[in-house]
């Protein structure tokens, strides 16, 4: 009897800590993402509040400066009624945000946490991650279409336009990292960085473009265009209430998180603590990766307190002229480095 329990316990633990389960479910997947979500939304409000000489979230937990605010918000979303308007396409209206929420998690599956800890270690894991990220906008379009609301519709259209324009610089700048490190495998990319130094130092151009694209594609200021409050209320999620609205609020942060993880892997040396490689305890690499991603996330949300938002045509112009050109230059830059490497 004892043996059986022991056996089950051990296999259970083994199963849980196997990369295939642990990564999507615990870290950096669901649980880590949820806790980050809670912290980051609080942080965003707090940073904005401090810059604006206010207190921000406070009364929910006074001793921690209101850090539990999001837990309270989440509870409120959970228990408030989900009103489904008569005029909406009901199935799409309910399912689209849920599927969208699930899909924003998917890229995390292929992002490795350390040298030998990845749910899916594929030769083309970078491409898979990028491909999965592009699912976001199509489902947001469904959300906006299903709502049957003019503001949602305009928001969805805006997101459609934006996604067309940001995906190309996103992919090109990621490709220039791939060219630089000669691989599409994220683990290999980090290994290369451990050997030769972080991507951001080799190709700062690509790193800048990728960072801007992160801010751009996750609706952070100054590119918070699809949800522009003073123009179109809250964009695609105008008709949503209760937990469905809560999901909608969280989606862009989850996307931000997964993109920041990818950024850390591509340009910030992944789980390597510093430029040179160290042999580390298996838990530590994950934490290091998380911290790097968190810095990117925190910077992105900090921009809320700095910028107004661009107009959609201006954002499109920036994407097609500036970001596209810079991304292309960064690709050439990577090839240049490769050539120098081969020659020298």
């Amino acid at each position: 009897m004892y043996d059986l329990i022991n056996y089950l316990w051990e296999t259970g633990l083994n199963l849980l800590f196997s990369p295939e389960i642990f990564e999507p479910l615990v870290f950096p997947g669901l649980i880590a993402a949820f806790s980050l979500l809670i912290v980051v939304i609080w942080l965003e409000r707090k940073i904005a509040a401090i810059i604006q000489m206010r207190y921000g979230p406070y009364y929910i937990s006074r001793h921690t400066e209101g850090a539990l605010q999001l837990v309270a918000d989440l509870l409120r979303f959970l228990f408030s009624e989900v009103i489904i308007p008569k005029s909406v396409d009901k199935i799409a209206y309910v399912l689209a945000p849920i599927i969208l929420f699930a899909f924003t998690f998917l890229p995390i599956v292929v992002i490795p946490v350390s040298k030998d800890f990845a749910a899916i270690d594929h030769e083309y894991s970078l491409l898979i991650a990028l491909a999965l990220m592009t699912l976001y906008s199509s489902f947001l379009l469904i959300v906006s279409w299903a709502s049957n609301n003019k503001f949602s519709f305009i928001g969805g259209l805006r997101e459609g336009f934006l996604s067309l324009s940001y995906e190309i610089p996103l992919i090109i700048s990621a490709l220039s990292a791939a060219v630089l490190f000669d691989s599409f495998n994220l683990i290999e990319i980090v290994e290369k960085q451990a050997a030769m130094g972080w991507g951001i130092f080799y190709n700062p151009l690509a790193a800048i473009v990728f960072l801007v694209v992160i801010i751009y594609s996750t609706s952070r200021y100054p590119y918070e265009i699809a949800e522009a409050e003073s123009e179109i209320v809250i964009g695609p999620f105008t008709e949503y209430t209760g937990i469905l609205f809560g999901l909608g609020m969280g989606i862009s942060y989850i996307k931000l998180y997964s993109m920041s993880l990818l950024y850390a892997v591509l340009f910030l040396g992944g789980w390597e603590p510093v430029v040179w490689p160290l042999n580390l305890h298996p838990v530590l690499p994950g934490i290091i990766l998380f911290i790097k991603a968190f810095i990117i996330v925190a910077f992105s949300v900090f921009l809320r307190a700095v910028y107004p938002r661009y107009r959609i045509d201006q954002a499109l112009r920036i994407a097609w002229w500036k970001l596209f050109t810079l991304a292309f230059l960064s690709l050439l830059f990577s090839y240049g480095i490769k050539i120098i490497e081969v020659m020298g």
Binding site: A48, R54, S230, R304, V306, P308
Partner: peptide, 10 residues
């Protein structure tokens, strides 16, 4: 109205 919450609060 143009999205700068800092300008508003300040």
């Amino acid at each position: 109205l143009i999205g700068s919450s800092t300008g508003f609060m300040w």
